[in-house]
Write a protein that binds this DNA or RNA. Structure first.
Lengths: 221, 221
DNA sequence: GCCCGATTTATACACTTGTTTGAATATCCA
DNA sequence: TGGATATTCAAACAAGTGTATAAATCGGGC
């Protein structure tokens, strides 16, 4: 009844590992089945046998990624009771940014997602719902608290976008590093400094928006 | 001596037009020569005949784009003499953002560049030097002025990145609009509001960074 | 009117890719 | 051990791609 005896489990796992690494590096389209099986030291047909087809394999990789991302989310999301909004924001950026920047085990899922962003496959939508939207919800809540009385749906959305965009910018990118090599903080120290910068910069930005006159369009609810 | 008689000039131009449109929509790799020639109502071999090969055609498209981008740059860059740094920053964002967001004639080059960013071809490097770096230089100068005494190379770079990332975030992206449809400002009015937000948010951020103690690491030069 | 170069056309070639096939081999349980 | 099942393997297939070729067609100047 064991669906996968010892040797089989080996190839199955080796393929999964190789696929994870390669898909993370290059994205779905730019990795061939032959690349994967060569890397995994398996036969070309092994992918069809174990995963149905290339997309089936990719789905399994992304499923692992989804579980990983949810675990990561739990670490970037601080309980709103017991912490000030400022603390939540700082903690969010401090946890999020290193995972975005670094390609190692801490953040591989974001590298994978980066490729999914430019060339979405059919798998994207479920991932968005399960792993991304909850984090955006949380961040929006924190921003709303920081805006206080001045909070409007538009302002919350715009400020959330400002924070999110400053973080996402650091997804590694061959082109970006061509434009300005220094843009990609290399050392842990540089990443930490950038995180502090984003938090500081954004808190000031939010306070400035909060300080604007409420205007005629404000709709408190 | 006319290198391209009437009919020939027609196909040449039709192919160039179709290629510009398709490359802008999908990027170099995801457009086939057959797509282009079908769209241009030309024969498959016309690309080889008129442009050597697919990459040669792409280079010509990107060359047009480069000239266009330089003209655009001139409009986003305000003379630093005669305008305050605040004015320069606001003008920069107001001009830059609409072109980033909209896929129409005003900003097609940025859509093309977006694909180049995720899948760089050999043409990227020269483009960076001629059209992107000058704009970054300008923005860095403005940020340096705004930071005043507090300016350090690291702070200038980080603040410039914060502004740039908030703008670049709005490059249209199928994935992003999946995450949050509202993120893509649709109307001219919404784009204008977002530009004002980014300017306001960033000016406050810069002032906050400028207000920090200079710290022991400051190296005025 | 006719010829020569420029252009267009249909077709073919070489290569890559994902997938299938059927035989060979390994593995497990009675 | 022996036979059924699971897994591996080499080879082939079909579709899509960029490019090359050689014949057909066009267009203007003598």
């Amino acid at each position: 009844m064991t669906a996968t005896p010892v040797r089989a489990a080996d190839t199955h796992q080796r393929i999964l590992d190789a696929a994870t690494r390669l898909f993370t590096e290059r994205g779905f389209a730019k990795v061939t089945v032959r690349d994967i099986t060569r890397e995994a030291q398996a036969n070309l047909a092994a992918v069809s046998y174990h995963f149905g087809d290339k997309l089936g394999l990719y789905e399994q990789v992304l499923e692992m990624g989804l579980r990983f991302a949810q675990k990561v989310n739990a670490e970037t999301i601080l309980s709103r009771e017991g912490h000030t909004p400022e603390e939540c924001l700082r903690h969010y950026v401090r946890e999020y940014l290193p995972r975005i920047v670094r390609s190692d085990n801490r953040g591989w899922i974001y590298q994978l997602l980066k490729h999914e962003m430019s060339n979405p496959t059919t798998v994207a939508r479920s991932y968005v719902r399960a792993a991304i939207l909850p984090r955006i919800e949380f961040l929006s809540g924190v921003v709303g608290d920081l805006l206080g009385d001045a909070a409007t749906p538009e302002r919350v959305r715009r400020c959330t976008t400002s924070i999110q965009s400053q973080c996402l910018f650091f997804l590694p990118d061959p082109f970006k590093s061509m434009v300005m090599p220094d843009w990609q903080p290399a050392t842990d120290e540089a990443i930490r400094e950038m995180a502090e910068h984003i938090a500081e910069f954004s808190l000031a930005g939010i306070h400035a928006i909060a300080g604007q006159r409420r205007g005629p369009r404000v709709r408190p609810r």
